[in-house]
Design a binder for these strands. Structure first.
Lengths: 303, 303
DNA sequence: TAAAAATACTCCATAGGTATTTTAT
DNA sequence: ATAAAATACCTATGGAGTATTTTTA
């Protein structure tokens, strides 16, 4: 079986063209060196040296094998180097899941910062609902996810990266759009547009319980999977929607956002990951996120 | 010190993701396998596996190292394959020296044939005088040479590849050009153009002794290194020259070649090589040349 | 408790050392 | 006569085996 030892010895002899000097360079005696080269030649099935017992010369095959051997050691060095870089999180790939609304607030800044800090990491972004992300995180098909809490699974660690008030999205010509602030009660008879509960149970339940406290159940006329769609439906005067305030960033014309008069629970976005699976690349990503969060101030129209 | 053994073991474990099964595949027990992987990780300076003691998973660095390891083994296979090919003479390089006049007769056919038979051999052609070739052959800087005999050096083997009569090159309007055959004696008072003796002692001495036998010493008015030049000087009516007949192939206008009436020693071209240094590639070249020679008939205007 | 990897130890194959011979210059 | 590689033989490192423990699902 050929070992790197054989190749190292061969390289030394090929460079020195002298078994004695090569042995010296390898800090070993000459006879075992001769033996190992012999062994290598047997394994390879061809001779590497012309041995006139006085002069050592590379055969033609030896010359070519020598050049190719160099490449083997270069490839080995490269493998080690790349592995070490990866172990420091400097190269690698990172699969990131995110709910669509994260794309309108924290995500751009985080990605930009991470790309600067770790340019050798290939990012793979997937827009997914919160529970799709949980499934993929468990299966190891995702490294981190930006989800809507609550998130009560022991195997995940999480960090809140963004908090914002909920607001009412109104058609531009809706009477309530004239007011600076909307009391929730005034929406009691309005048609509502909501996410399907399975896709965002946290947000859905928040909205429902909010309405309950204002003594009404929202009349849901339409569900929509995308934030984009919800906003478009509002613009089309299909109904009103209670949405995270950062949707304002969409700048959809025909839609006006108004804060709720009531104290509302804040809509949060959390970064989650598997506790036990923190690769250096993931760690670097977490570090980048941590560095950015303090700079974030929850937008709040009431402030 | 990292050995291929370590890498082979790592590849097996990385593929099986199970030390027990990997050990089985490697026809060995599980504990030494664990040890060797440990050892590899220590050498590398980073972990290859996440060991939860129940599940084995590649770390990110491990995944990348795995990919690079594949390339190492591919490179190793390539090195062995190329070496074996070279040992069979299927690839390699061949340095060929030749005297300029060889380019007008045998060389083209030989090269063409060899290129067809051994397309993977890179040819390096050098136009050199006979003694320059001897020096380089001794130094190993040339594999074979096409020279003008005589060649009396024990360490070389040789093979005559071409023989031809000597002829007189005359200016087109020279009175002797009217004759079908020229007696050497009629050139006694003509101005001669010759090679400098050091560059082609064999040919030079042949010509001189030829003249001696015809009872005159040639009056040398000009020496020229290139056959081309000699022929041009003849065309310019500077003098006459005794040259190998194959120079006719130059088709220089203004020059007429006429055979000598006397029996002349033939000018030969020999292929020579170091007896002790016959690489498979050289052997293949010799074989090609041998196959061609019988087809060669010495051109002879007297025939 | 069952399955899998890690530890602890033991052994022997073989890499490497020493002494000597062979051979070519 | 000398330098260099090959051969013969011996030594001991460390790779691999067996038995056992540890750990977690």
């Amino acid at each position: 079986m050929i070992e790197l030892r054989h190749l190292r010895y061969f390289m030394a002899v090929a460079e020195e063209l002298h078994f004695g000097r090569a042995a010296e360079r390898l800090h070993m005696a000459q006879p075992p060196l001769s033996q190992q080269i012999r062994q290598l030649e047997t394994e390879l099935g061809f001779d590497l040296f012309h041995r006139t017992r006085r002069r050592v010369e590379l055969t033609e095959a030896g010359q070519i094998f020598f050049k190719e051997c160099r490449k083997i050691f270069q490839q080995l060095d490269l493998a080690i180097q790349k592995g070490q870089q990866a172990s420091r999180g400097e190269i690698g790939q990172l699969s990131i899941g995110f709910v669509s609304s994260a794309a309108y607030n924290v995500l751009p800044e985080i990605l930009q910062s991470f790309r600067t800090q770790a340019p050798d990491v290939t990012l793979e972004l997937q827009e997914l609902t919160s529970d799709q992300q949980l499934t993929r995180l468990r299966a190891g098909r995702l490294d981190v996810g930006f989800v809507r809490p609550p998130m009560t699974d022991e195997q995940f660690a999480s960090m809140t990266v963004f908090q914002e008030d909920l607001a009412v999205a109104l058609p531009a010509h809706h009477p309530l759009a004239a007011e600076a602030m909307v009391p929730l009660r005034s929406l009691a008879s309005e048609p509502f547009i909501l996410f399907p509960r399975p896709l965002a149970p946290g947000l859905y339940d928040q909205i429902i319980s909010l309405c309950q406290r204002a003594d009404f159940s929202p009349r849901v006329v339409q569900e929509a999977i995308q934030m984009q769609t919800i906003v478009s439906l509002v613009a089309a005067e299909i109904g009103v929607a209670i949405v995270p305030l950062s949707l304002e960033n969409l700048k959809r014309t025909g839609v006006i956002y108004r804060p709720l008069q009531e104290e509302t629970p804040q809509a949060a976005i959390a970064l989650i990951w598997q506790k036990e699976q923190v690769s250096p690349t993931i760690q670097r990503f977490l570090d980048v996120v941590k560095a950015i969060i303090p700079a974030q101030h929850s937008p709040n129209l009431k402030g």
